[in-house]
């Protein structure tokens, strides 16, 4: 922020001056720089691997260039469209269901008059956020088990046949999304609850005097008041459109549901670490990352134009 304070001095002079004045800050920050250079910027440089043919002996630097061969291989792969479709399918599905769910949950909690129930529901709804993905998947496999699972027992009671939920490709995305909602709805609602708490109560009082119902108050007071929060979180969500959480999909994946559960991140892992096709996996990962950044930037741009809200 102070960059333009002394426009007459050159950047070198100012740097030297700052080093003298804030040398302790520089020393303090040095390990952080080291960390980011080693674990973030070196891997970013390692992306050149995507344009090379990796030879272990030659290292990344010495390996020969192959241009866009790795990308072409990916675009021509028999499962390219499956991977894209599954990745986008899962993430669009979970945004469509999960994003409004948290908002609706927050709005309903906001109008809940029974204080004790409200507190309990809130506290309990945050809990699943802290359970590990491994345990969530374990719970799913227990509850959805074909023979012993509680859901199938329930289906049997009402006279329906058991379903092998986890072996059914058509069920996979729904299982993923609903368990995602279960796990994250409460936690994601916190930010909306705090935004709703900031809404001026006088507006509500005026609306009540005018005879507005609660649904009308939600529609005309609450939602417009938290619009900017909603838009910002939505842009952030869009920025992760192509990065579906690896862990849960990986853990729920099996040979039977594979056609619906193979996504880009599990593919990157499989070809990269299990089959050691380093350069190919890097190319697939880079493709994914670039698309993500493009979506994020354009979502931000559109929202700045349309709704006058943006992240930066």
């Amino acid at each position: 922020m102070n960059v333009n304070k002394n426009p007459k001095k050159g950047i070198m002079n100012r740097l030297i001056h700052d080093l003298k004045k804030n040398w302790l800050l520089w020393i303090m920050f040095f390990p952080v720089i080291l960390y980011y250079v080693i674990f973030c910027y070196t891997p970013m440089y390692g992306i050149v691997l995507a344009f090379k043919k990796y030879k272990m002996k030659l290292g990344i630097m010495g390996s020969p260039w192959v241009g866009l061969d790795n990308f072409e291989r990916f675009f021509r792969a028999y499962n390219f469209w499956d991977l894209i479709g599954n990745t986008l399918g899962i993430s669009v599905y979970s945004i469509v269901v999960g994003f409004p769910a948290a908002i609706i949950f927050a709005l309903m909690l906001n109008y809940l008059r029974l204080g004790k129930l409200k507190k309990t529901v809130q506290m309990v709804s945050y809990a699943p956020h802290f359970i590990s993905t491994v345990v969530i998947c374990g719970l799913l496999s227990i509850i959805l088990d074909t023979n012993t699972g509680m859901l199938n027992k329930l289906l049997n009671v009402i006279g329906l046949e058991s379903i092998s939920f986890l072996a059914e490709p058509s069920m996979f995305k729904t299982i993923y999304v609903l368990s995602e909602v279960w796990q994250s709805m409460g936690w994601s609602s916190i930010i909306y609850i705090s935004a709703l708490a900031g809404v001026d109560y006088q507006m509500h009082e005026a609306a009540i005097i005018d005879g507005a119902s609660k649904l009308q108050r939600i529609r005309h007071i609450d939602l417009p008041s938290i619009k900017s929060t909603i838009v910002m979180l939505f842009i952030l969500k869009l920025g992760n459109l192509m990065s579906v959480g690896f862990e849960k999909v990986y853990l729920l994946q099996n040979e039977l549901n594979f056609s619906a559960s193979d996504i880009i991140s599990t593919y990157t892992y499989r070809v990269g670490l299990e089959q050691s096709k380093f350069e190919y996996s890097t190319a697939v990962g880079l493709f994914n990352n670039v698309i993500n950044v493009i979506i994020l930037v354009s979502a931000n741009m559109i929202s700045r134009k349309v709704a006058d809200e943006s992240l930066w």
Binding site: I38, F39, C40, T42, P43, M44, Y45, G46, I47, L49, I60, T268, Y269, G272, L273, F278, S281, T282, G285, L286, N288, N289
Partner: peptide
């Protein structure tokens, strides 16, 4: 950098 470049580091 993604999975593999980080792994290599």
């Amino acid at each position: 950098g993604g999975l593999i470049p980080t792994y290599i580091v």
